[in-house]
Every structure is written in C-alpha cells, then in structure tokens.
C-alpha cells in the first residue's frame, strides 16, 4: 500500500512539473534572434576604447600624450607615438612598443600628472590598440585626465585574423570624422 502511495506521489510530482512547462509553452518567446534582430541595451556596453575628438576640431583627439593609459594598461595593449614641434626634447610616452610582460610600467612622474605646458607642442602620430590582448577593464578610459578615451559600443566585432584587431585609433577617429562630415556635406 505504501509503495502504491509512493508511486502516485512520484507521478503527481511529474504532473506538477509538466504543468509549469505547459504554461510556459504558451508564453511569448524571450530570445532575440540575432542577426534578424538586435538587442537595444548597448548604451553602456564596454567595447574597445576609442579616441574622443576635440570639440573644436573633429580630426584631432583631446589626447595630451601623457601616457597614463599606456602605463595603466594591464596587458600592454596601447602604444602611442608622437613628435615635438618647437622647443624641447622629444620624450618617449609610456611603454610604447610591443607587449612585454616584464615592462617597467611605472614611468617616474607620469601618473596622474598633466604634462608641463611648455612652448613645445606635441603632435600625436599614432595611437594603436592591440585589441587581441585587451580585457576590457576600462582602466585606460577611467584614468584619462582629459577624457580623451571612451568606450566604443562595438558588440559585434568579428574578424578572421589577429591583424584585424590591431586598431589604429587615430585613423579610426579621422575616418569617423570624415564620414560624418561627408554626411553633413550631403
């Protein structure tokens, strides 16, 4: 008798479970079928970092070439080169170069200090991001003293080779400015 009761109880537990799935069967679909549909909550998504242009000149980034982002990057993704116009000696900015685990990341006096404003003017030649090694921590964006870096909202990046993820952010900025100007002109 006890076995029969047990069996009925077991079967009933299945019926209760089936009831839940049965109700769910008639509810609307929750999944978003990419690429037919895309999600709309990427407003705060952290994509790779991107340069921000100056308000008065969409072709020039706000960057002052202090190298804090290069110093802070845990995986050495960022590198920038520049040259100096006018007086003063050129200074290597940050650990510009290839990824090196043992690189001395702290350059004396480069953290959280804006560079001295002198007569010499510095011109950014390139600003490279090796996105292959980026872990999207956001330390570069958050520590930029002049907010020259921002997250792109690129959630759907795909590529076939590593080289496709080595970005020249300065070229990206200029291409973006050129295309938006083209839109304005049209």
């Amino acid at each position: 008798m006890a076995t029969l009761g047990q069996t009925i109880k077991s079967l009933w537990s299945m019926v209760v479970g089936m009831k839940v799935t049965g109700i769910e069967f008639f509810k609307p679909k929750l999944t978003v079928h990419y690429p037919r549909k895309e999600v709309d909550n990427l407003g705060t998504y952290r994509g790779h970092c991107d340069l921000v242009a100056r308000e008065d000149d969409p072709l020039t980034p706000k960057c002052i070439m202090c190298g804090i982002c290069v110093d802070n990057c845990p995986s050495g993704c960022l590198s920038l080169t520049m040259h100096v116009v006018g007086e003063g000696k050129p200074r290597p900015a940050g650990g510009a170069g290839e990824l090196m685990l043992a690189q001395e990341v702290i350059l004396p006096g480069s953290i959280k200090k804006a560079p001295p404003t002198g007569k010499a003017e510095r011109v950014l030649d390139s600003f490279r991001l090796n996105y292959n090694y980026c872990s999207l921590c956001g330390l570069c964006v958050q520590n930029c003293p002049v907010s020259s870096l921002a997250w792109s909202r690129e959630a759907y990046l795909v590529g076939r080779s590593r080289q496709e993820f080595e970005f020249d952010l300065l070229a990206r900025l200029r291409a973006k400015a050129a295309s938006s100007q083209g839109v304005k002109a049209a």
Partner: peptide, 11 residues
C-alpha cells in the same frame, strides 16, 4: 607579483 595593484584588477 608582476603587475601593479591597479593592473591586477581585471584578473
């Protein structure tokens, strides 16, 4: 041991 305190955050 090879990263600064800040750089270890994403780990």
């Amino acid at each position: 041991e090879v990263k600064t305190y800040l750089q270890y955050l994403p780990n």
